[in-house]
Structure formats: C-alpha cells, structure tokens
C-alpha cells in the first residue's frame, strides 16, 4: 500500500507537483494521466526518490520512505520506463537478474526466476536468455524491461509510459500481458500514460493531474460519467465518451434471455465491440455464444451512462 500525503515538488518557480495526496491499495493499479508537463513523471519519481520531495511524505506499507537509504528503498520498487534502459553489456538474463543480484539471491534461485519471467512474458528462455538487448525487437526490449522491474517481486511497480514507443498491435499485447501479470502477482502498480484508452483499459482507478495538482482519482466509469472538472471532461474526450464507457464492460454483463438472428458473438468481447458489430451488420440484437442476446437498445442505454 502506498500513502501519498501532501506531496509537493518545486523546480525553481514551477510547482511540478503541488500538494498531492492519494492512497493506493495493495494490488491496485492506478493509471496516472494528464497533459504534458502536468507533473506525472515527477510524482512517480518521488515515490522511489529519484526525485526528492520539497515537502510531504510517502508511506510504503506504513513506513516513511524518507527514513530508508534510497538504494534500499529502490530495490523494493520496480521501475520501468519508455526508453527501457536495459544495460547493453548484459545479456537478457543478467538484465532481469539485476535486482535479485543486488539483493544477494542465490544463483540457482535467480536463474529459476529469470526463466519464470521470460516464460510469463512469452519469450522462451532457451532462445532469449543469452541474447544482448541489441538483438531484441523494441517490443521484446520493453517486455524485458518490465520483467526486470518485476524480478525481485517488488511490493510496488512504477511505470512511466512503458509502451509509448510500441505499434498499436504490440502495444495491445503488452497491455494485456501487463494486466494479466499484474493481477496474477498482485503487485501494486502506478502507470503513467498519455493514452486515455490505455488508462481506461488498465487502471482500477484513474488519477488525473492538471498543472501539478491531482484533480480527480476515481474508477474509469466514474471518470467518464462524473468528471470532476472541465479539464477532466476534456481529457477523457467527450466525443468518445459513450464508446469508452462501453469499452469498460464485457458484453456478457448486458445480456438478457432471448434469441436473435445472425452469427453469435463471444460474450467476453467488450460491449463496445458488440455495438460496432450491431452497427456494421445492421442488426437490432446479437445472439451470444452459449445463449442469451444483447440488444442495440441496451447497448445505447449503457453508453449514456446508465448502470
């Protein structure tokens, strides 16, 4: 659990982060969004003290992070960034092993952990273990970067636009992997992103920053339907709002008994994809694989923000 209390950071005359308070529960994933220069990176970097706060405190599981030597604190916090920052002279395996090595894990345990993570990220260890970062694609480098951040089973994972440089398909895959792995490990995660879709897809809650201040932190649905300020409404994109709302729920949640004509759709698809299918095929209702149906009317209702 991370408790951020009245945290501020000033650079000269700029208040990069201005009196931010936020509590992040164990296992929760918070997506941090905001325009460029709103202080997201600065806030994130104060959590592992890459930037020292001007005032305020951060508690990690109730312990004041300022009370620990910075390097010991950082070994407990995973950190993945856009430019991945893999060590070019180390193999993939040694990169992933970096923090466990610093922590003095036995070699056998490190080897096992490296293979486990490579497998988790869909990179066969026998093939990837001994490669240098330069011999990986951008997407693979990014995955190794995240694997390295998770290697020592950190209590917290911090990510700063980790997928910013990936193409849409690779990016979607990376997001799905992250979500699956984060749920599986139960790692408390803070993810900075510029991409609203990414924030909505991954965040349990979305924290919106505006000129150094935290203006709202709420569930994706609440951010979309009840934006706290004009700025939040603009950031979440008013024209896309109905579709984004539908994107948050699987179509199974909107199912009702009954029949409909045409090819059935997978109930695990998002309601947004079901709507697209309705519009594209000109149907008023779609049958779901395994029984039941969803109607265009119900989808439209949901898109207006109804429960």
């Amino acid at each position: 659990m991370i408790e951020i209390r009245n945290l501020s950071r000033r650079f000269g005359t700029v208040m990069a982060v201005d009196d931010v308070s936020l509590t992040i529960a164990k296992g929760e994933m918070v997506a941090l969004v905001g325009t460029s220069g709103s202080g997201k990176t600065t806030l994130l970097r104060m959590l592992n003290r890459l930037v020292e706060p001007s005032s305020g405190t951060v508690l990690l599981n109730g312990q004041d992070t300022a009370a620990l030597p910075a390097h010991l604190l950082r070994r407990r916090i995973g950190y993945a960034i856009q430019g991945h920052g893999l060590f070019p002279h180390y193999t993939v395996a040694r990169n992933i092993a970096a923090v466990p090595e610093l922590l003095g894990w036995p070699a056998a345990q490190i080897r096992e952990r490296v293979d486990e993570l490579l497998t988790l990220f869909g990179m066969p260890p026998a093939d990837f273990r001994n490669r240098r970062p330069a011999a990986l694609s951008g997407g693979q480098q990014q995955r190794v970067g995240v694997a390295r951040a998770l290697a020592a089973r950190p209590e917290v994972l911090l990510m700063d636009e980790p997928f910013g440089a990936l193409d849409p398909v690779t990016r979607a895959q990376a997001q799905a992997d992250l979500r699956r792995i984060q749920r599986q490990l139960g790692t408390t995660t803070v993810l900075v992103t510029h991409d609203m879709e990414e924030a909505l897809a991954l965040g349990d809650r979305i924290a919106v920053m505006d000129r150094g201040r935290l203006v709202q932190c709420a569930s994706p649905a609440a951010i979309l339907t009840r934006p706290a300020t004009e700025f939040v409404a603009r950031l979440t994109g008013q024209s896309d709002r109905p579709f984004r709302l539908l994107g948050l729920v699987p179509v199974a949640d909107l199912a009702e008994p009954g029949a409909a004509s045409g090819t059935p759709v997978d109930p695990a698809l998002s309601a947004r994809e079901a709507l697209a299918e309705c519009l594209w095929s000109g149907r008023e209702a779609l049958p779901l694989t395994g029984g039941g149906r969803v109607t265009l009317h119900r989808l439209a209702e949901r898109a207006r923000g109804a429960e």
């Binding site: 390097h71 991945h84 893999l86 002279h89 610093l102």
Partner: peptide, 27 residues
C-alpha cells in the same frame, strides 16, 4: 552513458559505486 541506462541503474537500487563499477566503467 545513455540517460535511460543511467536512470535505470539508479532506479534498480545500485549504489553510486556499483553503478560505476558494474555499469559505467564496463560500458
């Protein structure tokens, strides 16, 4: 040293001496 590499080394929890000996000098 590429800035992301320097930043990563710091963020992993390398001490200044470990950064020098294991990352900066070898590179």
């Amino acid at each position: 040293l590429p800035p992301p590499v320097a930043e990563a080394a710091r963020a992993m929890g390398y001490t200044p001496r470990q950064r020098l000996l294991r990352i900066e000098l070898p590179l």
